[in-house]
Amino acid sequence: MLSDANVAAVWLTLKLATITTVILLIVGTPLAWWLARTPSKWKGVVGAVVALPLVLPPTVLGFYLLITLGPHGPIGQLTQFLGWGVLPFTFAGLVVASVFYSMPFVVQPLQQAFEAVGARPLEVAATLRASPWDAFFTVVLPLAKPGFITAAILGFAHTVGEFGVVLMIGGNIPERTRVVSVQIYDHVEALEYAEAHVLAGGMLLFSFLVLLALYSRKRTSAWK
């Protein structure tokens, strides 16, 4: 049913979404923790920057990434200086772009979860002589687990659904940057509607099932 090219695109998309989600959970956890706790006046600024991809059209983000990551851009100059070359048109470039693009979908649920946990459990843990790290891993993490699950699901699903940014900085290279959404676009443009339907229908079903899992889970836990 799926051609080799479509299989490659599906595989690449899953790989991109998995790596992006893992990085976002690692980077997003301390960031969300800071946002949930800090009294700093920078909280608003950082929170706004994290949320930018929610409101910006992907073409804006993609355009600026193409410029800043490119050979004349500041990050491009840095990566060249470090001997890594430039990021656009590479899988690593897609990962960097996706981390920015899906950031709010991971950070915001985590931040809400941490805020819901509050300061009290940590204070109690401290009186029991738990170190801050100890308290975080044994008290906060279990309490914030639903937030982590929501963050991981949304981050993954949102990366799978990414299109505009990938199109701008990916260069549509088979097996390196041609993800499912770009492949669908190609099929539609080439009037290969049958091929497009297979992938587009699959994407619709996948997204629905992910959201169904997410919202069903929320309801049961809320009613417990």
């Binding site: 490119g70 260069g171 549509n172 190609d186």
Partner: peptide
Amino acid sequence: TFVTGENVSQTYQFIVTGNA
């Protein structure tokens, strides 16, 4: 060495930004 734009405008963008 190919990088593929979806239309000529995007291809132009790849070149004008120096990425290609």
